[in-house]
Design a binder for these strands. Sequence first.
DNA 1: TTCAGGTTACGAATCCGGTCGTATATTGCT
DNA 2: AGCAATATACGACCGGATTCGTAACCTGAA
Lengths: 127, 127
Amino acid sequence: MAISKPIKPTESELEILRVLWDKGQATVREVHEILGEYKDAGYTTTLKLMQIMFEKGIVKRDDSSKTHIYKANITRENTQQQIVGKMINSLFGGSSTQLVMQALGNHAPNKEELEEIQKLLDNLKKQ
Amino acid sequence: MAISKPIKPTESELEILRVLWDKGQATVREVHEILGEYKDAGYTTTLKLMQIMFEKGIVKRDDSSKTHIYKANITRENTQQQIVGKMINSLFGGSSTQLVMQALGNHAPNKEELEEIQKLLDNLKKQ
DNA sequence: TTCAGGTTACGAATCCGGTCGTATATTGCT
DNA sequence: AGCAATATACGACCGGATTCGTAACCTGAA
């Protein structure tokens, strides 16, 4: 397994990544309009952000036509793992269980989700 | 229950808070030396940070003697909740279950912890 | 009293994320 | 060709976080 550098997207970058992950790919305008539903920043702000993300290697883009098409260059799963891992260390003293208890305690899941977690738990017990 | 303002400690502030939470209280020097085990910043940097945290109300202090004694002014639990809640929304589309699966999948807990989680799960199922 | 060591206070420099204005290029239409 | 619409590129600014140098202030020991 290759060692992945500690990518640390900022808050704004995460918002953009979410759009890219959901849609698979998108132009600056598409991203900007989706973000615009709950946030108001100028178009060039979104553009600049995505350009910087490109320089950082967080996204890739197809610039063969005038309107560039962007895609995420890091996976949702990896990013989640990075961030959750760091949080477990910095906030929960390295105990994933503490985090799980917190999350379940304050955001109770529904029946189906409970089942899902139960299944995973059963699997872990077997090992 | 009083509405708690959205306190958002920075990364550095969290490091300091962790020391304060663990020890209950500490002087600037104590905090600085503990942080120094894995980080090197000048003493006055730590001091300034803690002074700013005091102004923000994140910590309180007893300045009756020359060497001030600091304590956290927000609880670990509240802070965890804040941050985990935000992460669930921004990274897991509002699904705490997704976060739980992530955490358990990548940081497998031991037997005792599994039991603990199982207990909580059973409780949630009853509701 | 005097001085050395440790402590707080404070201002300034720097860095980085986020924001935007403006210039420049490309494209399609008339 | 000329124009309007839309894109990208780029530099500048703002604010907050972080860092540190220096001054001012105790306090205990010699």
